[in-house]
Design a protein around this nucleic acid. Sequence first.
DNA 1: CGGCTGACGACCT
DNA 2: GAGGTCGCCAGCC
Length: 115
Amino acid sequence: MPYDPARHGPRRIVGPGFHAAVHELVRAVPPGRVATYGDLAAALGNARVARHVGFALAAAPDDGSVPWWRIVAAGGRLARAGTAAAKRQTARLRREGVVVRGDRVADFGGRRWTP
DNA sequence: CGGCTGACGACCT
DNA sequence: GAGGTCGCCAGCC
């Protein structure tokens, strides 16, 4: 289906360096707080590229310089629930005082942080 | 240059 | 709630 502004809304270009831009934003999330993929995508100018935020995190260095564990899916859900990555994320969040029940962040409304 | 690969989100049945 | 569709596009080969 071709792009149709009436159906799909205004097209916005994310542009090159997207991963780096995501990493920058993620570094700004304070400890004990969480942000969503969609929020970061919106902050980057295109709410539809939430997926790419995820891809950018997958490519992020896992050395602590990018706190990827503070990024959750819409509604406070953990992405990739049940995987080893999700377990690691849960452990790291709890270490910061974030309560996680099952695959969800408790009190998501109060924990949510947006750029 | 073409094809493939994806940490999502909104919406539908 | 559970499961499927589709839009979205940078980065890597």
